[in-house]
């Protein structure tokens, strides 16, 4: 499993912002996706600034209905000068609500698991409660 995780990390061919910022020449003109917990940080006259994985970058294009603090997903062309040219944008308005409501079933299933099965700590096994 560890090997697969590392393989996925090293060989994923999808254009990522962090990879492009590390090697701007190679990514110049490449269409990339930005949307891993990406947020709008600031609106500018000609576009906006976003932050993804702790890295900020300027995006040239209309922010549409996005405002600072909103989660977004964009498809954009990376330029080696250090900015993105917007191609498509989606404002993930319900993202926070989605994260919050998702906590409830996760806790519920854990509760049901421990209610239905008891843990035998000596053998590290779940046993059915009779």
């Amino acid at each position: 499993m560890a090997a697969l995780l590392i393989y996925g990390y090293l060989f994923n061919p999808v254009g990522k912002l962090s990879k492009c910022l590390a090697d701007p020449e190679r990514c110049d003109g490449q269409l990339i996706g930005v949307g891993t917990e990406a947020k709008v940080v600031e609106l500018l006259p000609e576009g906006f600034i976003i932050q993804e994985l702790g890295q900020r970058i300027r995006v040239v294009g209309s922010p549409q209905k996005a405002s600072p603090g909103d989660y977004i997903r964009i498809r954009a062309v990376f330029h080696k000068e250090g900015y993105l040219e917007l191609d498509r944008l989606y404002v993930a308005k319900g993202r926070r609500a989605k994260i919050i409501v998702s906590i409830v079933p996760a806790l519920l299933v854990l509760f049901l698991l421990f209610r239905t099965y008891r843990v035998d700590w000596r053998q590290l096994l779940f046993r059915e409660r009779i």
Binding site: M1, L4, L5, G8, Y9, K16, T36, E37, L53, G54
Partner: peptide, 22 residues
């Protein structure tokens, strides 16, 4: 991904059928 976004590139493969099956 939510609590520590820089880990996304490493853990995203956990959301694939083969890894989840393992």
């Amino acid at each position: 991904m939510i609590l520590y976004p820089p880990a996304s590139s490493l853990v995203y493969s956990l959301h694939t059928p083969s890894m989840t099956a393992i």
